[in-house]
């Protein structure tokens, strides 16, 4: 009896795809590695472009972490990203549910009005936001940073689309069982759209964690800086502290890396479900 060894079939198309994906991966990962590498270098070694530092040191981490400002910025970023995320998960899904499951006059108009705001670029909104913040005394405050993102048209649209897929029978059964509309939304509808909620939460958190433009405009006090703004302050004229920036950036990246590693499954599913770019 002879045993034929199965030769794996070589598919040129597949090789090409793997090669392109590999190159894409390298391009994506290189800056990340470079960031961590630079964070382990002294100021004098920063322009030595070797990936592995000649004399790696954790001094930068000690300096950044012992600088009270960094911890403050870390707290600000965490507080703002979490608050905005919770707000989006709550309000976007509440409005999305209402638009998806209730029939009322003007429903389509309201939906289109919300949707149309997606077409306005942030840069155009910044001036009205700023004037509004100045008028209401929100400049230089947490609320000033957070208010434009507390509810988003995108999140509302995403959640509406998902609530459309929840069978009405589920809601009607609960209605007959005597639940009020808010409890039906909370106890019955929300658990049925968990994948969409996860996607919305992840994207909102990451978006707010890395937000730069609006927080930069609305804050002047260092105490209210978020991490990206705080890190940019390391780059003052003629004295760019690259090793400090990279150390701070490395620390700032850790939560997002953790989110990615822990919730990778949801992110991939969320991207597929929402048709988003990651």
């Amino acid at each position: 009896m002879t045993t034929a060894l199965a030769m794996p079939r070589i598919n040129p198309g597949r090789i090409l795809i793997w090669t392109l994906l590999f190159l894409g991966g390298v391009i994506m990962v290189t800056p990340l590695i470079f960031m961590f590498s630079t964070s382990l270098k002294t100021a004098g070694q920063v322009y030595d472009l070797r990936m592995i530092p000649a004399a790696p040191t954790l001094d930068n981490y000690v300096r950044v972490l012992s600088d009270g400002r960094f911890l403050r910025w870390f707290f600000n970023s965490t507080f703002i990203a979490l608050t905005v995320t919770l707000s989006n998960v709550f309000f976007d899904s509440l409005v999305g549910y209402t638009l998806a499951k209730f029939r009322f006059r003007g429903r389509y108009f309201v939906f289109l009005a919300i949707l149309s705001t997606l077409m306005i670029p942030t840069e155009m909104l910044v001036i009205p936001w700023y004037l509004m913040s100045a008028e209401f005394g929100w400049l230089n405050s947490y609320w000033g940073i957070m208010f434009p993102g507390m509810m988003t048209a995108f999140g509302t649209f995403l959640m509406k689309q998902f609530f459309e897929t929840v069978p009405d029978d589920f809601l009607e059964a609960a209605r007959i069982d005597g639940l009020n509309e808010f409890t039906i939304w909370w106890r019955v509808a929300m658990p049925l759209v968990t994948p969409a909620l996860s996607a919305l939460a992840i994207f909102t958190f990451l978006g707010n964690w890395t937000a730069f433009f609006w927080p930069l405009i609305v804050t002047t006090s260092q105490d209210l800086y978020t991490l990206p703004i705080g890190l940019s302050s390391f780059a003052v004229e003629q004295a760019i502290q690259w090793e400090m920036i990279m150390t701070g950036a490395a620390l700032a990246t850790l939560p997002t890396l953790a989110v990615f590693l822990l919730l990778q499954r949801y992110i991939v599913r969320g991207v597929m479900l929402a048709g988003l770019k990651g």
Binding site: P167, D169, F170, E172, A173, I176, D177, P191, L192
Partner: peptide, 12 residues
Amino acid sequence: AMVFQNYAIYPH
């Protein structure tokens, strides 16, 4: 009380 065609029992 009502029983629906697709059961309407909650998967979670």
